[in-house]
């Protein structure tokens, strides 16, 4: 059975291996130079990265983010739906393999391959990007590069891409098993995987490790703030906590209770025409601070990176296992 699975899978495996090898080679050639740069420049590296390296940085990010989705769509979804479409599952199921074992081997081989591919890609990209990541976490002021904890970069670093790939693969298999047609299963896999990847950073990841909380004064010379939503919201930027991932913001009143930004602030910022001048903004911010208003910021510090990585890896692997159980149940009870 392992032979058959491998025989059916080897073309896909070869294509993926070639792609991963090509990427790894490209990164291996350009990576050492970046590491050297970090040794001499430290955190100011962020201002000295060449434009080609910058392209590589974003390419690596995109590749690691895309690998699990691609695996789910092109390995997971067709794995069983294609057999059901062509009827070849009858061939295997009547040749001396129980369908449970058939599923187990297919899932096992596929999941190991998926995790290997995603793991190697993530390893290569994480290694290549580590000088930039360290520079950002070390306080290199930048709008160009993501902190490792930023939702975009987090899913493209460390061990979570392996768990994402395992989950996406089993998700594809499960949808293929239920939908029984390859193309709709592929589309559903992409849609559902994307939905999960958006939902987890918004609702789940902030709670996977103990968050830190700090209260910063609202003052012209304090932490830089942005004024949003018609002066109804204030967002403080934690410049002295580099690499942090801010998960929520709350304005507090003089009593230290959560409160809305008072309307007097919006009134103060109102102008006859055009945006308020800088002096006017500073004066209004100072007035708000004088009323006792402060900004409470909840964030995951950069040091939580690995505990968040392991927690999310566990979460996704748990989901993958649950889906595996569902597949096993479905193939015995519902597939005919």
């Amino acid at each position: 059975m392992i032979w058959l699975t491998w025989r059916q899978f080897r073309t896909q495996a070869a294509v993926m291996s070639a792609a991963v090898a090509a990427l790894a080679a490209l990164l291996a050639v350009t990576g050492p130079h970046l590491a050297d740069l970090y040794r001499t420049a430290g955190s100011s590296l962020v201002d000295q990265v060449s434009s080609s390296d910058q392209t590589l940085y974003y390419t690596g990010l995109l590749v690691v983010l895309a690998v699990p989705a691609v695996i789910g769509m092109f390995w997971g979804a067709p794995l069983i739906s294609r057999e059901l479409e062509t009827g070849t599952n009858c061939l295997a199921w009547n040749q001396g393999v129980t369908r449970t074992r058939w599923l187990a081997v297919k899932l096992g081989v596929g999941a190991v391959a998926a995790m290997t591919a995603a793991g190697l890609t993530s390893l290569a990209v994480s290694w290549w990007s580590s000088p930039i990541d360290r520079a950002v976490d070390g306080g290199g002021a930048t709008d160009t590069y993501f902190a490792r904890l930023d939702p975009v970069a987090f899913a493209a670093r460390g061990v979570v891409p392996m768990a994402h790939a395992a989950f996406a693969f089993v998700l594809g298999v499960a949808l293929g098993l239920v939908i029984r047609r390859t193309l709709p299963a592929m589309a559903a896999t992409l849609a559902l995987y994307a939905a999960v990847q958006i939902a987890v950073p918004i609702w789940i990841r902030p709670h996977l490790a103990a968050a830190d909380r700090t209260t910063v004064p609202i003052a012209p010379d304090g932490a830089p703030i942005s004024i949003q939503d018609g002066a109804k919201q204030i967002v403080a930027h934690l410049e002295d906590v580099p690499g942090a991932w801010v998960t929520s913001q709350q304005t507090l009143d003089a009593a230290g209770q959560p409160a809305a930004v008072p309307s007097s602030f919006a009134d103060c910022l109102r102008t006859e025409a055009g945006p308020p001048t800088l002096q006017q903004v500073d004066r209004c911010v100072a007035d708000l601070g004088a009323l006792g208003y402060q900004q409470q910021v909840t964030y995951q510090p950069a040091g939580n990176f690995w505990s968040l990585q392991w927690a999310e890896t566990g979460l996704y692997l748990g989901l993958a296992l649950a889906l595996t159980g569902f597949c096993a149940w479905w193939i015995r009870r519902r597939v005919t």
Binding site: Q8, T11, T86, G87, T88, C90, L91, W93, N94, V97
Partner: peptide, 16 residues
């Protein structure tokens, strides 16, 4: 499974 052979409708085989 070894006792019973089954040739399904349209005799599917692995095309690849």
């Amino acid at each position: 499974l070894a006792k019973v052979g089954f040739v399904a409708q349209d005799t599917p085989v692995y095309a690849a």
